[in-house]
Design a protein around this nucleic acid. Sequence first.
DNA 1: ATCCGCCATGTTGACGATAACATGTTGACG
DNA 2: CGTCAACATGTTATCGTCAACATGGCGGAT
Lengths: 348, 348
Amino acid sequence: MRSATLAAMTPERPAPLAKQGRGPSMHDVAARAGVSHQTVSRVLNDFPGIRPETRERVLTAIRELGYRRNMAARALATGRSEVIGVIMPEVPHFGPTSTLYAIEHAAKQVGFKPLITTASWDSESMGEALDFLLGRAVDALVVMAQHPDVLAAVDAITDVPVLFVLTGNSHGARSVAVDQVKGTRLALDHLYSLGHRRFQHVTGIAGLTEAQLRRDTFLAFLDEHGLERLPVLEGDWSADAGYRAGLQVADGVTALFVANDPMAIGAIHALEERGLSVPRDVSVVGFDDVPESAYAHPGLTTVHQDFTEVGLRAVSLVFAAINGKEPDVGEAVEPWLVVRDSTGPVRS
Amino acid sequence: MRSATLAAMTPERPAPLAKQGRGPSMHDVAARAGVSHQTVSRVLNDFPGIRPETRERVLTAIRELGYRRNMAARALATGRSEVIGVIMPEVPHFGPTSTLYAIEHAAKQVGFKPLITTASWDSESMGEALDFLLGRAVDALVVMAQHPDVLAAVDAITDVPVLFVLTGNSHGARSVAVDQVKGTRLALDHLYSLGHRRFQHVTGIAGLTEAQLRRDTFLAFLDEHGLERLPVLEGDWSADAGYRAGLQVADGVTALFVANDPMAIGAIHALEERGLSVPRDVSVVGFDDVPESAYAHPGLTTVHQDFTEVGLRAVSLVFAAINGKEPDVGEAVEPWLVVRDSTGPVRS
DNA sequence: ATCCGCCATGTTGACGATAACATGTTGACG
DNA sequence: CGTCAACATGTTATCGTCAACATGGCGGAT
């Protein structure tokens, strides 16, 4: 089994499942406790008006039988599943991943679990993901929308509450986002205030909201301050792309704004290879504040995005929506600048 | 909503759900197509023996109504859910996260999706996770077992196939693991062959299988070669811990084996702060080969773990088990050494 | 022509839970 | 001492699907 392959594993129709005996049901528990199945249901759902003794008897029977509620049946009867669907990008970047963990953690607290599926932003892929999750009767949907196109694809969904976790500006009431413009300006203001006047930018994947906003804000900033627009270097979020971009940084540039930390680390590596010292010759600012950035060489100045907060708010909003409450809409999540050693005053 | 809180969100009993009308069912489709609901079911499940014209009529009705299969009902009737439960560590480390993405990707290919829940390794937390997932009628369980204790907790489960994704040695037939001993020896042999004789080790979280194996193998290696056992430095996988450990590396040590890359990066930072150059004074080897390691300063020599392969094999084995086939058990996944610039010959 | 059997489809009964309604048993009160 | 409300519990219908069996029509073999 060197390098497992799934090719041979895809049958035309699902193979005849090895039938496994089902576990005990409410009826079994009821029989054992000498009550009706409905009483068992009531105990399970904490209904009032059960004699303590009866409840105890039921609970004992449950324990003895190792009974476990069948959520499929419950979902069928109630229409709710206590599962929230999460649609993520297919590539494991720091932001979505951190947010996912935060969502999982927060959802657990309120009795929900995430059912994950990944999708790229083309509508076919999105459609499949939606079909799958909605078929699963998820109670709500959290969509990590990297690309403007997904908004339209998902907006048609009315079956369940939908929340966008954007890495950009907000979309309607039901969305959570880190303020990208603010974050970008934090970085650029910092560089500007250190005296830098020749800027260059390494972008994230073209077209993604997040990357686009950082890029647009960068260019706007240049214009506002009457600075020269040097060519923007196209990246793809990877350290590798950062490295390649770093090799192309124009001569005379003293301030490099990189759209995320891994690329910044790659870029710094390239700059040093070219004999340019950071921050003596070039100051570099990243974005994200991944945990390793503090120990990069030199320690990376970067914009911190609070993904934990994003996940928490996402669950909070989704939960409100599920319960039909008005969402407690907040402003965008505020990023902040973490100044370390990769930025310094421009050399005179 | 500064810093969202979930405290106020946990009602005693689930709030009365805002009732949302259910979508169309098979009956609706059947009525529209002028057939019986069973025929609809047959079309949906690709049964043979449907007149093409009938099938077409059904498909049209489905499209027109925007019908979507109710998987809860299907799961109830069939006993299978096409969902595999995944139990992960609560902390977002590189290994489990990468494996998760690989699992999601591979599972999707064979029509499954992962239902994720996190758990620490105490049996209470594990028990909750298991209850949740088994109650969901997951078709199989993938458990990322960081700690020996979880094996026992999960071994009792017989309802569904269980697969362990270990970050250590294997456990019974149904497990996938990267060969930790091999990986560790790769790193140590490399250092030894460069002439190093004074070694020190920074560990992962004490007790975790992975950390324990690397540590044990390290100590065994020392003994085999008659090398001095300097104190082992306790880490917790974080770059931060690596940094702190780096500050405590003993004088005269020329070879530092660090249990993962982030800690290695932190340790290097500390060493440089102490005026020790890597690799001139100290050679450092990490573990994992996170994408940024190539661009660390200096480029980090490390042991590559192929988590994609782990995820793929996990799904492959799980899928086989679900279908009652004998698993195609393979050996442990082989790690390999990636030599970069953080290691060099010992100075004479 | 008759019967058999296959093909395409319809009918009925689980699956395991909840919801709505029905029932029997208390105890308080006039 | 009878009545009624409140309480504790039981009974029946329902959710949407699949599985098993039933049916009707049509063609070929006898």
